[in-house]
Write a protein that binds this DNA or RNA. Structure first.
Length: 199
DNA sequence: AGGATGATCGTCT
DNA sequence: GACGATCATCCTC
């Protein structure tokens, strides 16, 4: 299967629009071990001035990518155990981004199983830390450009065959009531408890 | 130099 | 549903 790279201009810059536009797109990772890829089924928006956004308290060494140009990979380590993959959003100078929370695995399932040490296909990329493990994404990818990088990129995969629904973001304590999580209705590959995922 | 924290996950009951 | 792992990062002293 060929995953043709998304071109600049095919993604919006505004944060919520980007969170929606990423749904249905394919995240592709290639290295010497092979190709792994999955369709994005769940995202969360972290807005400018949003107290839940890592950029909220100003630029630091960790979050500098969020303040740079849009559509760069922002990858950070959480709880010392898991990486989270985001794309920066908004024009250069504004700190904001979109967290990719879950993928439907579509390529390289065996490789994902080895990296994740599980045979449960549904769980391979269900959760932000899990998908980074399945695709071998770590902090070294922070700042990379998915329009040019040879190891990690985004591809088009036709229209999303599902309605987009919203819910509060998972695991955040600040601005917890805001519905800034977006997911493909009915997808079994979406993370979170069942009550968070009404069809 | 030291302490608190966290956009999670796997395991256990 | 609860809990501990595990560590880079950031803030305070």
């Amino acid at each position: 299967m060929i995953f043709s790279r998304l071109r600049p201009g095919q993604l919006p810059v505004e944060t919520r629009a980007l969170a929606r536009a990423l749904l249905g797109r394919v995240l592709v990772r290639a290295n010497d071990d092979g190709v792994t890829a999955g369709r994005i089924v769940e995202t969360e928006a972290y807005l400018p001035g949003d107290p839940a956004c890592h950029a909220f308290r100003g630029m630091t060494a960790r979050n500098a990518t969020l303040f740079g140009p849009p559509h760069r990979a922002y990858v950070y380590l959480i709880y010392g155990t898991s990486y989270c993959f985001n794309l920066s959003s908004e024009p250069d100078g504004k700190g904001a981004g979109v967290l990719v929370r879950a993928l439907e695995p579509i390529e390289g399932l065996e490789l994902m199983e080895r990296r994740r040490a599980t045979h449960t296909q549904r769980d391979l990329c269900r959760g932000p830390g899990r998908l980074c493990r399945a695709l071998a994404i770590d902090r070294a990818f922070d700042g990379t450009d998915p329009f040019t990088d040879a190891r990690l990129w985004l591809a088009d995969a036709g229209v999303l065959g599902a309605r987009i629904r919203r819910s509060p973001r998972i695991g955040v304590t600040a601005a917890a009531e805001r519905r800034l999580r977006f997911y493909a209705a009915g997808s079994p590959y979406v993370s979170g408890a069942f009550r968070l995922n009404p069809a």
